[in-house]
Design a protein around this nucleic acid. Structure first.
Lengths: 219, 219
DNA sequence: CACCAATCTTGACAGCGGTAAGTTAGGGGC
DNA sequence: GCCCCTAACTTACCGCTGTCAAGATTGGTG
């Protein structure tokens, strides 16, 4: 009997063939279904159809496995952001749409987002996973790239680009975090109420920040 | 022998006398020393000098214990914010100082802050712990209260107060989260470098957001 | 003084991440 | 075509965790 070279559900053999990728992609699914707190190596392994110790042949650690998943998440996030750049030409709309794309990614994949940005263990081991830093810098670069073009065209005022990026990133990151943890509805009853839908509130926040970064002499 | 009515280190008796408060305050210390991930009920119990199951006489759950700790954290945060209001009269400075006080609280007590705002289990069980919602609303009220006074004096433009508060809160929350998780230095090498210290970057971000909320006809 | 109920201890359980030693089998060298 | 080496996988185990049940202790009330 031939071994199945790619991950599939037909007839497991002793050697899986592509366990590493199967683990990462199944972990992504698992994170969509449940939170990161309930995420278990043993559960993941049994879903892929291997024993609970098999992942240790491909990952040093649970953290190392999660780091690989986080890299995938960052690539996904970058795709969201790039799309917003390409679909809009008007600078204001490009800015707002990118911010909303960021928030959309976070709210559509809360566990994955939390893993990437709110987890405590990944940052300290970041030097062990250079891919993680690369993918993060790429996403941040998409943001500062857009800001740079807006600045060069005179739409944004002078100032350090990384500083602008930091402020914008903090805003959208905070929006995602407050929305996904459910802190929005409770402290003010503002969402879907007085200030309209969450999306409108996000747009308003982004416009506020953009106004602070704008070139005052521009239209 | 008389029992010691307050928590103390002298001669444990079978009945502690004030175990509930002792657990909460020791948990606060423990969170200062180590992250929330390493926080263990058994460790906490042994530090207080009781058996590992003793906390279950006072808390239904580990989550319930953490909820009580989170309430304390929110009270501390409120104190930080109130202080910023009382120590500044100039509206711009009051706004910036409150934001910086928020960020200072988060960076000085990262594990406690994370427990309150980034934890995944507390929100879903918030209806079980009404004190948690109350304390959160109080802190949010300090923010919107300040914004309301600034709006009434004409310093801020018209608009929904909760919406403004949501935007500002998201910004400072994002700042805390990015700083404490260490995502700032890596993606842009901006802190303590090109854009100066973290504190300056925080101030600049707050000024940007404030500018977007200002009344354009004001000075 | 006796008893009750709250408090605390002891001991157990399942499930977790991680390790060590043994088993299987794919693939290169002959 | 065969052998054997090694990577991949399994099984069994460890210490740890949160949680529960049953029993021990005792302050306070009648």
């Amino acid at each position: 009997m031939k071994a199945c070279p790619v991950a599939s559900l037909v007839k497991r053999t002793y050697h899986h063939g592509d366990l590493r990728n199967a683990l990462v992609s199944e972990a992504l699914k698992l994170l969509e279904e449940q939170g990161a707190a309930e995420f278990t190596l043993r559960d993941l392994a049994s879903r892929v159809g291997v024993s609970h110790a098999a992942p240790y042949s491909h990952f040093e650690d649970k953290t190392a496995l999660l780091a690989a998943v986080a890299v995938e998440g960052l690539h996904k996030l970058s795709a969201y952001l790039e799309q917003a750049v390409q679909e809009n030409s008007d600078p204001t709309e490009q800015f707002v749409q990118m911010g909303q794309a960021y928030v959309r990614f976070g709210t559509e994949h809360p566990a994955l987002y939390n893993l990437v940005f709110a987890s405590e263990e990944l940052p300290e081991q970041r030097d062990k996973f250079p891919e993680l830093t690369e993918a993060g810098s790429a996403a941040f670069g998409t943001l500062t790239g857009m800001l740079g073009r807006m600045q060069q065209s005179g739409f944004l005022r002078e100032g350090n680009l990384d500083g602008f990026g930091f402020a914008v990133w903090a805003l959208v990151h905070g929006l995602v975090s407050l929305i996904t943890t459910g802190h929005v509805e409770c402290a003010g009853d503002c969402v879907d109420g007085e200030i309209g839908t969450t999306e409108e509130a996000v747009r308003a926040s982004l416009l506020g920040m953009l106004h602070g970064l704008k070139n005052p002499t521009a239209a």
